[in-house]
Nucleic acid binder design. Structure first.
Lengths: 341, 341
DNA sequence: CTGAAAGCGCTTACAG
DNA sequence: CTGAAAGCGCTTACAG
C-alpha cells in the first residue's frame, strides 16, 4: 500500500500538503491539488484511517451496543438499525456492532473502544453497558429510559411509553374491554417498567383493579419459555386460571401470533371473542396476517435517526440547541384484530 | 486518559513491559505483572486500540458489507448477523456494519477501510462492493455465489441452492403439483439466478415445461411494487392471466403471507386449493401462522458462523485446511401449508 | 498557499 | 525476563 510519503515524493510536494488535499482542512491550490490527486491515483493511494485516527482522536465510528450473547434482532431493531446506518452515513460515520460483555471489560487483553460514541439498545434497570460507558466517559445515547442510579441526565431517545399505554387502554376500554392480558417486554427492560406502571395506572383511573396475573414478561432468550411466550400465558389464563380475558396486548407480532394460537386452541376466535393489540410489531407483517393486526406504529427507523442526531450533537458534529430527551411520535394503526366486547 | 508512559512511570518499568503485560505477547514475571496491573487500575488505564492498530496493522474488526441505501434486514439477515457477531467475538473481532456506496469510494475525503476483512451479504451479478474489495485487496467472503467476471476462486459460504430448488420441486411434484408459481428473490441477486435455473431444470426433468410468467423477482426496495410483492403476482396470475396455479414457492415469509392474501381474495384457500412453500423464512414465524408454513430451514445463523471462520482462515487467525466454498446444510420442514393436488 | 518537524500512543526487533 | 530506541502513517501548530 502506498503511503503519504510516496505520494508526496511523486507529486513533488510535502506530505503536509498531501494531507491537506485529502482532509480538505486547509486550502490547496488547484494545480497542486491535481498533481497530488494524479499521483495518488497512479499509486492507488488511500489515506490510512488508523493513522489519521491516532492524531485526530476520532474514529468516525459509533458503536451500536447490544446485549452480549442473548441478543436477537426483532423487526423493531432491524428498522431502528436501518435508521441509524442511514443517518450515520450522512455524517460520514460508520456503525460498529458492539456486544462487549462485562467480562471482557475486566480482562486486560482488551483495548479501548475504537468508537467516538455509542447508542445503547434496550437498556435494563441497572445496565452494565451504560455503567461502563459512563465510567469510561464515552458519549452515548440510550434508546429508552435510563434507570442506572449513577447516571443522571443522560441522553435518550424514546417513545412516550406512558402515553402509549394510556392510549391503548383508552382504546380498548372504549370498546368495552376490562379484562386485558398484557404480554410485556422482558422483565428488566426499562421499557417494561414504564409500560407496566402506565398500564396499571390507566386501568385504575377507569375503576379497573389491575391483577398481577394479567401482566407477563418476555422470558430470557434461549429459555424454553421464550419460544412459547404468548401461547403459554394465554393458555394458562384461559385454561387453568379460568380467567376472563377479552383483550390481549402483545409486545410484538410474533408474541401476538403465538397468543392467537393459544386462543384458537382454546376454541375461541380473534377478534370475535378476544381482541389482539400489538405494541411493537412489524407493520407490513401485521398488515399481512389474518386477521390483520391493530397496533402501535412506533417509528423505529425515526428513533434510529434521532439517536444518531443526538449523538452527533453530543460529539459536537451537529451545532445548535437540542433536547436531551427526544420523544418520537407514535400512533395507533387500526386494522382488524380489535372488536367491541 | 492515562497512557502507557504514565503506567510505566508509576509501576517503575519500561513501556515495553507494560505493553507486554497487556498484549501477552511476551512473558512477564509475576511481580512485575502485578505492579503494572495495579498501576493501570489506579490510573484507569486501557490500551489505546488505535495506536496498537497502527503498528500491528490489524484493526480486529471485520466489515459486514451490506448494499447501501436500499438495504433491509430480513429475518434471514438478522439470524445470519447473530451468527456472525457471536462467532466473531469468539476470535476477539468486532463487526462493522459497512454500507459504503461506490460514490464514496471515488471521493478523496474517504480514508481506507479500518477493517481486516469483509463479509459480503447478498452478492449481485456484477457486485460493485466485491469489485472494490478485490481492487483494494481486502480479504472477503461472500454469502452466496460470486458472479463477478474478474474475481475467480473467491471465498464463499452458501446453501446448495441448486439442490434446494430440486428438492422443493421434487416435494411439490410428488404431491402432484405441476403448476407452480415461483416468487423468487431480487432480480440481480446471484441467488436468484441459481434458483431460477435449478427450478426450471427440475421441472423439465419431470416433463413440465417452465413458463416465463410463472417466475417473478422481488422488486427493488422502496418501490411501490415491493410492498405488494406476492399479492400482485398471484392476483395477476389467478385473475387476468387465468393461469392455473396449484402451488406457490415464496422467497420469504412476508411474501408468502402477501400471496396468501391474494389467494384468499380470489376465493381460494391455502392449502386446500393452493399449496404454499417458503424458501427463506423465519422458522418461528412460519410455525405461528395459520396455516403454519412448510418450507426450508436454511440455517442462516450457521451461515454466519461459517462465514466468519472462513474469513479467519483467510486472515491466518485460524490454522489448518479449509474448503474455499463452504456449503451449509438445509432441510425441508413440513408443516401445514402443502397438500396433495 | 506550502514546508519542516514534532508528536499521536502504541509495538517490536535488538541488545542485554 | 526487561529496557532503550526506532517506527507505524498520518496531522498540526509554527514559520514563511
Amino acid at each position: 500500500m502506498a503511503k503519504i510519503d510516496d505520494v508526496a515524493r511523486k507529486a513533488g510536494v510535502s506530505k503536509g500538503t498531501v494531507s491537506n488535499v485529502f482532509s480538505q482542512k486547509r486550502p490547496t491550490s488547484k494545480k497542486v491539488t491535481e498533481r497530488v490527486l494524479k499521483a495518488s491515483r497512479e499509486l492507488n493511494y488511500v489515506p490510512n484511517h488508523i493513522a489519521r485516527s491516532l492524531v485526530t482522536k476520532k474514529t468516525m465510528a459509533i458503536g451500536l451496543t447490544v446485549p452480549h450473547g442473548n441478543f436477537f434482532f426483532s423487526s423493531f431493531h432491524t428498522q431502528f438499525i436501518n435508521g441509524v446506518i442511514l443517518e450515520a452515513s450522512t455524517f460520514g460515520y460508520r456503525v460498529l456492532l458492539d456486544m462487549i460483555s462485562t467480562k471482557e471489560v475486566q480482562t486486560p487483553t482488551l483495548a479501548s473502544y475504537p468508537i467516538d460514541g455509542a447508542i445503547v439498545l434496550g437498556p435494563t434497570e441497572e445496565d452494565e453497558r451504560i455503567e461502563m460507558l459512563h465510567r469510561h466517559q464515552i458519549p452515548f445515547v440510550t434508546v429508552g429510559k435510563i434507570m442506572n442510579a449513577d447516571v443522571e441526565d443522560g441522553l435518550t431517545v424514546n417513545n412516550d411509553n406512558e402515553r402509549i399505554l394510556r392510549d391503548i387502554v383508552e382504546y380498548l376500554t372504549s370498546l368495552g374491554h376490562r379484562d386485558i392480558l398484557f404480554l410485556n417486554a422482558g422483565k428488566r427492560m426499562t421499557v417494561a417498567a414504564e409500560r407496566k406502571q402506565a398500564f396499571e395506572e390507566a386501568l385504575r383511573e377507569r375503576g379497573i383493579e389491575p391483577l398481577p396475573a394479567m401482566v407477563h414478561y418476555k422470558p430470557p432468550l434461549h429459555s424454553d419459555a421464550y419460544i412459547k411466550y404468548g401461547y403459554d400465558e394465554v393458555a394458562h389464563a384461559l385454561g387453568t386460571l379460568k380467567q376472563k380475558v377479552t383483550a390481549v396486548i402483545a409486545d410484538d407480532d410474533r408474541t401476538a401470533l403465538s397468543a392467537m394460537n393459544a386462543i384458537k386452541d382454546a376454541g375461541l376466535r380473534v377478534p370475535e371473542d378476544i381482541s389482539m393489540f400489538v405494541i411493537c410489531g412489524d407493520q407490513s407483517m401485521m398488515h399481512q396476517t389474518t386477521p390483520s393486526l391493530t397496533g402501535m406504529d412506533l417509528q423505529p427507523s425515526e428513533l434510529g435517526v434521532r439517536a444518531v442526531r443526538l449523538l452527533m450533537h453530543q460529539l459536537g458534529v451537529l451545532e445548535g440547541e437540542y433536547s436531551r430527551n427526544w420523544i418520537v411520535d407514535s400512533s395507533i394503526i387500526v386494522r382488524h384484530s380489535c372488536l367491541p366486547v
